[in-house]
């Protein structure tokens, strides 16, 4: 099993836990902290990414180490959570703190997956104490993992989704590498969990395997997925895309936007 798939297995494990569970999934010395089906934090020994560096880089010019360390010490002495302390001192914005925590968490999960750490058990915590602003859904984390190493492309894919998706439509963009599809951007709630999102992406990608035999110039297709909803899938130079449309009208609107976008790019 490859690194990305192993990381998705960790996320699927989080999803399989009861919704009110709070605690730590243990992988050797590495930990993934969860709360209410979301991920709060992940840490893996030997990770090349340090939270301190991520926090410093949220400001320009970067925060000084001295400022950060002084805040850490104050928080340690008072028992205040470090994140709250950083916000209260105005050293980092809420958005900056979230970005830093998210980058650290995805890196931690990637490290656990790469090191092929075995799951050793769950240690429950007595109470949920993480600020809801700074926890991450499993699908959001999956996107963060997929975008590692593809950041520029992920930004482009996100922009494409934003420009073509209309009402009653949600979508995802993914790239294909040796691990298969890697989701790099989503718009809206594409699936109930990581496995459903991946299933949709694999299905969309497999369609072009069939379609290519019929007409290798085909870039866009519309179908019905699981007999549930209309799905439009297409690809361009950057990525593959798949969108779920609640109505046929929404699918038709999306198709015409994709067509117009292709015409604009070709002009």
């Amino acid at each position: 099993m490859r690194t990305y798939e192993r990381a998705l297995d960790i996320l699927a494990r989080v999803e399989s836990m009861p919704g009110d569970t709070t605690g730590a999934l243990c992988f050797g010395k590495a930990r993934v902290l969860v709360q209410g089906g979301a991920i709060c934090w992940a840490v893996a020994p030997g990770s090349p990414v340090r939270l301190t560096d991520l926090l410093r880089s949220q400001r320009h010019p970067p925060l000084s180490r001295d400022e950060l360390e002084a805040c850490y010490r104050r928080c340690r002495d008072s028992g205040q959570p470090v994140g709250e302390g950083l916000l209260a001192a105005g050293l980092v914005s809420a958005q900056g703190l979230r970005q830093a925590l998210f980058a650290h968490t995805t890196e931690g999960i990637a490290q656990i997956a790469q090191a092929e750490q075995t799951y050793e058990g769950f240690v429950p915590h007595q109470r949920a104490g993480y600020d809801a602003r700074f926890v991450f859904s499993t699908v959001e984390t999956m996107v963060g993992l997929g975008a590692r190493g593809h950041l520029a492309r992920a930004a482009l894919v996100h922009s494409t989704l934003a420009s073509v998706l209309g009402p009653d439509t949600v979508g995802a963009g993914f790239v294909i590498d040796a691990d298969g599809p890697r989701v790099v951007a989503t718009a809206g709630s594409v699936g109930r969990g990581v496995n459903q999102v991946m299933e949709l992406c694999r299905w969309a990608h497999s369609l072009f395997g069939v379609i290519g035999f019929v007409d290798d110039q085909t870039r866009v297709a519309q179908g019905v997925w699981n007999r549930e909803c209309a799905v439009v899938t297409w690809w361009d130079a950057s990525a593959h895309y798949v969108a779920r449309c609640d109505t046929r009208a929404a699918a038709t609107l999306l198709l015409s936007r994709i067509e117009r976008r292709e015409e604009e790019l070709a002009a």
């Binding site: 069939v210 007409d215 110039q217 870039r219 866009v220 179908g223 019905v224």
Partner: peptide, 23 residues
């Protein structure tokens, strides 16, 4: 057969947009 190879897929009501033709 092809779907067993490429994953569970439903191709009922599939519309493919080529440059000049639609399948």
């Amino acid at each position: 057969t092809v779907f067993e190879r490429s994953g569970p897929a439903e191709l009922d009501d599939l519309m493919m947009f080529g440059p000049r033709e639609v399948h």
